[in-house]
């Protein structure tokens, strides 16, 4: 009886259940936002100064332009893509296990009219929204460093959000089945870090021996990096662009479906 009244009161307010899960994530974040606001302004500036200007100085002296750009300009969009992935990945490992196992907030949540699937939708959409804002700030800072050369740079926040969602969804699917946080350490070491390093972020694919370039293209992050670079410079042809977007969208959709299923199994059974 009480369940009926609750759902009806919700439906009169036209708020879907997942939206409340999203609001919860946002409310939780609002208590801890201070440091992350500092870091979303400070970290891009620090990274761009160190990698772009510092290392860039060495690169300019030795190699000159990289794919037609100064090293600073070359590396900036890649750093944006990395940030989107890193923040999203960090939110979908330990915090998910904590919500399932240690603090058990997800168990409390599914005792209300919320469904496990709503929690996934809430988390994913929250990360998409948050990374949209964060990468928008990043894009403005990049522009201040002169690293954007086309109006298409306004797509950067959308790409940032897409990267966040594309990594969040499959990772939630994975984290829903994890028993110990040792697994995350392994995942971080053997998947996340290599992906950061080998996605043509810090240097172009052409640096790799020809026989190894396909490995780079297997990295999901590579597609995000390539998209960011295209948007920042206004370059790229429709075919490859479509391929990059498709890979990320496919990751998001498949990950989302599996995540809903896995989380339901973990919480309900």
């Amino acid at each position: 009886m009480s369940i009926v009244t609750v759902t009806s009161s919700v439906s009169t307010r036209h708020r879907p259940a997942w939206f409340r899960a999203l609001t919860y994530e946002a409310a939780f974040y609002s208590k801890t936002w201070r440091a992350s606001v500092i870091s979303s302004f400070l970290f891009p500036i620090l990274y761009l100064s160190a990698m772009g200007i510092g290392v860039g100085h060495l690169v300019n002296a030795h190699t000159g332009l990289v794919e037609g750009h100064t090293y600073l300009h070359f590396v900036a969009p890649g750093l944006l893509a990395i940030t989107a992935m890193q923040l999203s990945v960090g939110e979908c490992m330990w915090p998910i296990l904590a919500a399932i196992k240690w603090v058990r907030t997800y168990h409390a949540a599914v005792a209300t009219p919320l469904e496990p699937g709503d929690l996934v939708t809430g988390k994913v959409s929250w990360l998409g929204a948050r990374l949209f804002v964060t990468t928008a700030v990043y894009a403005v800072i990049i522009a201040c460093f002169g690293a954007t050369s086309s109006w298409t740079a306004i797509f950067l926040p959308f790409i940032g959000a897409l990267i966040a969602v594309a990594f969040a969804a499959p990772l939630i699917a994975f984290s829903s089945r994890v028993e110990s946080d040792v697994t995350f350490t392994m995942l971080f070491r053997f998947v996340v870090v290599p992906m950061l390093l080998f996605s043509a972020t810090f240097y172009p694919v052409s640096q790799y021996p020809v026989g190894l370039r396909w490995i780079v293209q297997l990295m999901p992050l590579y597609h995000g990096v390539a998209l960011c670079r295209s948007a920042a410079f206004g370059t790229g042809s429709p075919g490859p662009l479509l391929a990059h977007v498709s890979v990320l969208v496919a990751m998001a959709i498949v990950g989302y479906v599996v995540a809903r299923r896995n989380l339901r199994r973990r919480l309900v059974s």
Binding site: V59, V182, M186, Y203, Y208
Partner: peptide
């Protein structure tokens, strides 16, 4: 496993620098 796998972390970093930045940055 956390300790054993720790060996791979420097390997990946140094490998990545060896493949790419070594050539871009030079000496």
């Amino acid at each position: 496993p956390v300790f054993v796998s720790g060996f791979f972390e420097p390997l990946f970093y140094l490998l990545s620098i060896g493949i790419g930045l070594n050539h871009l940055v030079g000496d």
